[in-house]
Structures are given as C-alpha cells and as structure tokens.
Design a protein around this nucleic acid. Structure first.
Lengths: 235, 235
DNA sequence: AGAAGGACCAGTGGTCCGTA
DNA sequence: AGAAGGACCACTGGTCCGTA
C-alpha cells in the first residue's frame, strides 16, 4: 500500500556531513540554507494523525449499525491468588496480568521509538494504549488500567499484604470496589515509611516505575502527612 | 481579594483516618460512602483554570487599545564570554543566564508542588514558563528558550568548545542563526561518543537534565547514527 | 534580511458519566 | 446496585508564521 503524497515529497535530505569527520568545526556548515533540513519522520507512526483539522468523535452507536458487537469485558471479582473466577467474571490475577501485558507493550513502543530516533516514553502513555489496541489487545484500555493502578502497586510492593487483603475481602464477600478502596491504606503506610515520597516508592520498583502515581493516592499521602506533622507540633 | 465561589464550598473533607493507626486494615473503611472524598486542591494553582468551558484566545491586539507597550527583547548577537553586547542587542552570556533563571523558577514550582502534594515536574514545563511570567520575568518565553536549548547544552557540556565557537563565529561576523546551527555538531559528536544516547547525555548533566532534548538534535543524531552503521556494514 | 514570541494545534493525562 | 470504558476536556509539548 502506498501513499504517494506522504511517501514522496520530502524536503532535501542534505544532512551534509560527509565531511563530518574532518578536524574541528568545519562541517560544511556554511553552505546554502536548508542545510539542516531533515526528512519527515517515518509517518506510519502508530496510527497518530498526520495533522490538519481536528476530528469529530462520533457519539454513541446509531441503532441499526452493523456493530462488530464487541461486548464488554466481564467485571472483576475479588479472588484469592491462584483462584480462577467462574461465571461471567474475571479474577484479580487476570487484572494484574493486564499490567504486565502493558509493560510488554511499552517495551515494544520503546523499541520502535529508539529505532526511529523518536522520543522514548518511560511511562505507559496514550501511545502505549493505542499500540496495545492495534496489536489486538482490545480488552486493555486507559480508564480501567488507571482505575486499579494502586491495587497493582500493592501487589508489586508487598505481595503478602496484597494476598492477605484479597483473601480477607473475598471471605467477607466484599465487592471489587471495596477491595480497591482498601488497597490505598497499606500504600499510604509505605509512603510514610519512605518519608512520604510516594513517587519515589513507585519509581524505585522495577515494575511500578512505568505507571503514573494515581492522583487519589498522592492526595491521600499528602493529607496523612499534614495530619502527622500537625499532631507533631502539639507534642 | 476574595473569590467566595472558589474559596468556600469544598466537598466534605472526611479523609476519615482518625483510626488509621489501629491494627491491620480496619481503617474505618466500611463506613458510609464518600469516605475517600478529598477536598479540592488549593485552587490558586498558578493561574491554571479551574475548568469548565474552553476559553477563547484573543487574537492580535486591537489598534487603539491602551497597550502597556511591552516592546520585544533585543535580538541576540554572538558575543564572546564576558563580553557585554552594546546597542540594542543582548549577548550570549545573558542568553545562558536565562536558562539558569528558568532552573530557579522550576525549583520554586517544584517546592510549591511538593508542599501541596501535587505532581512535581522534573522538566521546564509550560507551568514553569507561566510561573516565570507571573513572577515578572516577562522576558522569558517558551519558543525562545526551546530555540536555543542545544546552544545552552553545549555551554554546559563543553565550555571550552562552546567558548571557542563563540569567538570563532564572532570573528567571522556570523549572525546568531549561523552560530546556533553550528552548535549542533559538537553535540552530535558527543552523542556518538556516548553510544548515540543523546537523552542520556542530557540527563546525566546536572543543569541539562531539566530541559527536553530538542527534536532537531535528536533527529540529527538519529541520521548520523544510521549513516555510521551503514558504512560499517560495507567494511 | 534576521530574529522574537503570540498564538495555534495535535496529542496527552486524567476521569466523568451515559451505558449495559 | 456495581462496574467497564467511550468520550470528553483542560492542558501540554512543540513550533509556525504574522510581527517588528
């Protein structure tokens, strides 16, 4: 498949450093203008638009459209480690595996960026989610992954506590939302033990490094911290 | 000056962790909903909008407006180290000082972010430029700073070569644009010496770390690299 | 002509809320 | 009701080009 308009018509690719090895700064730099002109980047840049005109998003599906009928993912339920969710449900091991998949997709995006000399993301960005979708992982999406990041964080940072929490909440018959809320608190404790540097807690962990610290978690840490120092000043 | 609408009406600040110190996970977590509700962040967030409705930018100044007549900064000329530009010109020492000022403004922004528990920028972002303007440094702006980043980079990474280039280009009577172009090549050489990791070259330098690698420089490195490996495969 | 910077814009991080 | 995720939006990084 060819797109003549994008494939051809690159500006002059005269990087002009054939004599770049010669001594000092005589890089043929004083030639004609257009000297440092660079060709367009490869252009098949992971589905990103080539610019020109904001696109309109279509609103909800018209009834009567063909519709490839992508049904939603099954909701998560609280499962203990190793337990497979039965019925139209997904378990937490599966949830955490999604995070590992994202890490792999990020690796691929980084690899591609490096090959192309483009800036290389260090985090799971929109680009990574786009790439995942393109690679067929349609079950991965940004709101979901962001929603449970801190649960994954606990899983990475203290597997025992994470596993214990899962068992506990499963026994009590709590729903996913309750378990998710509960995951914040052990993390706040860990932040306290690390001088309230929750960012650092994330960055220092090999697997967590690539995930943004969730706003709510950062705020929780902030308020706990100010409470701590308040009571301190009354001692 | 008070803005009652923004200052009052914060949501319920029931972080509700008064019993946070008690054993294990009984953090009062099973109380009423709204439990993890957090108050609005401090809101005087460096001129950022409080959301709701995209704002229109005014186009160029109507003739006949009062106009505080902020004239443009004087253009830069190539000066040698220590030389003060005369006439309506600015010298390169002044240019480089602008970068140091930005670093200080970034420090301030980081300090504020940490106090407020907000995410803390590691680079000179829009927020930093906004802060600089707010603090009266109206002579600092993003396009200018981005334009000369690689010149500052050379100044940071190899002061001798940078100074030499300045003297050389001043002698030859070259204009700022020519000097600016010339600054790319020593940097490409440095990238080569560092396995083409220009990102790393920036990040490893204390002062450069906070500046984004300019697109053009990254591209230059990329094309030089592919040229190198091409000729290598023919040996 | 050479240069400074207001203004623009594709895309991002973040998350609300119509949906199932 | 609880949960999944399309869609939205303030803002960002990036830089063009009307301006002086």
């Amino acid at each position: 498949m060819m797109f003549p308009d994008t494939a051809a018509q690159n500006g002059p690719l005269n990087l002009n450093s054939k004599d770049h090895a010669q001594h000092e700064h005589s890089h043929g730099l004083f030639g004609p203008p257009g000297l440092l002109a660079l060709p367009e980047p490869s252009s098949d840049n992971e589905g990103r638009q080539i610019p020109r005109k904001k696109q309109k998003r279509r609103l909800s599906r018209e009834p009567g459209e063909d519709g490839d009928d992508r049904t939603r993912e099954h909701p998560f339920i609280v499962t203990e480690p190793g337990e497979v969710a039965r019925g139209k449900k997904n378990g937490l091991d599966y949830l955490f595996d999604l995070y590992e998949q994202c890490a792999r997709f990020l690796d691929e995006v980084q690899q591609m960026a490096r090959e192309r000399g483009e800036k290389c993301p260090t985090k799971v960005t929109n680009q990574v989610f786009r790439h995942a979708k393109l690679k067929g992982a349609s079950y991965i999406n940004k709101p979901k992954m962001r929603h449970y990041v801190h649960c994954y964080a606990l899983h990475c940072l203290d597997k025992d506590k994470s596993n214990f929490l899962r068992k506990q909440f499963k026994e009590r018959g709590e729903n996913v939302g309750a378990w998710r809320q509960a995951c914040y608190f052990p993390l706040v404790d860990m932040a306290r033990d690390n001088g309230w540097d929750i960012e650092g807690v994330f960055v220092r962990n090999e697997k967590l490094r690539i995930w943004y610290v969730p706003t709510k978690l950062r705020q929780l840490c902030h308020f706990e911290k100010s409470k701590d120092s308040d009571s301190c000043s009354y001692e």
